[in-house]
Amino acid sequence: MLTGFERIQLISLAGSLFFMLGILELIRRQKIKEAYAILWLIFGSVFILLSFWKKGLDYFAGIVGIYYPPALLFLILIVAIILILINFSVVLSSQNDKIRILTQEMALMRTELEKKSPKNVDGPDHTALNQTARTDD
């Protein structure tokens, strides 16, 4: 398996390792939650494996009937990206719901507070925030 280690293998191995270390470092620094890093790590491992096992690509390409093995590489990559993006959509939708509920509860509580002691509550002080948010998009 390690005989005849070619230049492309070294490069792809270095690239994959660099990628994996980057993800692990982000997890260590708590920039990514472990749950969201799993997909990245899985596909990183696949690419490390394929860097070592050069024949593996030909092998799997043969199984699924792809004549040009490197095309399989792109296929795996695209599938990886699609899966991760779908995962993002799921997370995004659930966050959307959570933010909505928080916003509503906060507004309702503020209204209750306002009724009890009108002096302590100013009007909306978030207009500035909204304006800056709007220039962003």
């Binding site: 916003t103 507004a107 209204t111 909306p124 978030h126 207009t127 909204n130």
Partner: peptide, 26 residues
């Protein structure tokens, strides 16, 4: 719904309505 203009103030001025200000646009 987190208006960027004076909607909240205009509504409050009438003193006939309870105004709920959402802190972010929903």
């Amino acid at each position: 719904d987190a208006s960027t203009d004076q909607t909240s103030l205009a509504a409050r001025k009438t003193q006939k309505a309870t105004v709920i200000d959402l802190p972010a646009n929903l």
